[in-house]
Design a protein around this nucleic acid. Sequence first.
DNA 1: TGGCTGACTTTCG
DNA 2: ACGAAAGCCAGCC
Length: 107
Amino acid sequence: MADFFNDVYDVVRLIPYGRVTSYGAIAQYLGTKMSARMVGWAMNAAHGMPNVPAHRVVNRQGLLTGRFHFSTPTKMQELLEKEGIAVVDDQIVNFDRFFWNPSFELL
DNA sequence: TGGCTGACTTTCG
DNA sequence: ACGAAAGCCAGCC
């Protein structure tokens, strides 16, 4: 297991409550050796990892592309709505407002 | 060793 | 504006 998975999990855990981020943002934060796909790949391995709010990680459009990987496809949306994030048609409303950029917030 | 895959992103047609 | 393709890198046959 590569360490970079752990890095991804760490960044995801740092996402504040009621905020979301994108795969690309995490990739950009971790470095050039990281690609957006790798973040998704890392999240795939996040199954069984506690305290990893994968529901706060969406694609650049704010679309819940990974919802199907949860226990139930609607679980991701329910978790986001529970945190005060409106989700319509599997897409986060006002995504730019809820967006949390690690490269900026953790700078 | 070599090639396929993946919860993405960007760009060209 | 929409669709298709390439690029990215690590893990797993």
